[in-house]
Amino acid sequence: MTGIIEAAVNGILMGGLYGLIAVSLSLIFGVAKIVNFAHGALLMVALFTVYWILELLKVDPYLSALLAGCFLFFFGYYFQRLFIEPILKREKDTAALTVILLTSGLMLIIENSALLLFGADYRTVRTAYTGKVWEVAGLYIMQPRLIGFVLSVVLIRLLEFYLRRTNFGRAIRATSQDREAARLMGIDDYRVYKVTFGIGTVILGFAAAFLTPFYFIHPAVGDLFVGKSFVIVVLGGLGSITGAFLGGLIVGLIESVGAQFINSAMVESLIFIVFIACLVIRPMGLLGKERE
């Protein structure tokens, strides 16, 4: 029994990080309707950003998230500005498909550039939290995971507050619901896209900072998370922030608890079975809005 509880706790903690990464993807998709296949590559950029901040400045990994966030906001902002915006502007009707091709291509370019720049070495950072464990009633809870989880929850609350209560946050939501009407309100939709992309990348920066104390960094590390993120986003409901986070928790739980009962190689299939079952029952995802 302890084993199962331990697995459940781990599943939730890890699921929180999956959720955070998926929230970023969901936000960008929900607002700009961009299917961002470069998401994993951006996570990798975020991880390397955090890595270099930690290596060069030797600050606390959780503090590094703020520094990385500043840089990554502009990275995301100009990523959208330079690569995606021109296509959205030029190809009004066929842009969706082109953007998929574009982001897939950018993924390869970013990953290969990282390979050239940083080499294929696996890197890890020993932080003050690495390998630290809290023992609670016979359960080992890994410190960096718990801290990462709690901060993820806080971050998502902050994001929701921003979207609900601030003028620009409202503009982001408005643009996601009706782009043309948003323009009529005086909202610069392309700026909303850029800022949203920036925010999404900042979230990845935080996810990277939460991962770094117990993870490794490598040009292809994004591949480990990106497939899962798409599943989570659809499971949670396209464009829903809370849904994406919840979806992350569910996938984390299935992955961790499921592996205690069946072979982990089968767990992937289990995730997809749950995923398909959910979509049959609720085609719009857990917290998705019905489409008219």
């Binding site: 999956y18 205690q260 072979n263």
Partner: peptide
């Protein structure tokens, strides 16, 4: 214990917990 995990596994904790048990 006979545990094969899929390539691209992001988290090894489930496998290790199973090992522990």
């Amino acid at each position: 214990l006979d545990e094969g995990y899929p390539p691209k596994t992001a988290d090894m904790t489930p496998v290790v917990l199973k090992m522990k048990r």
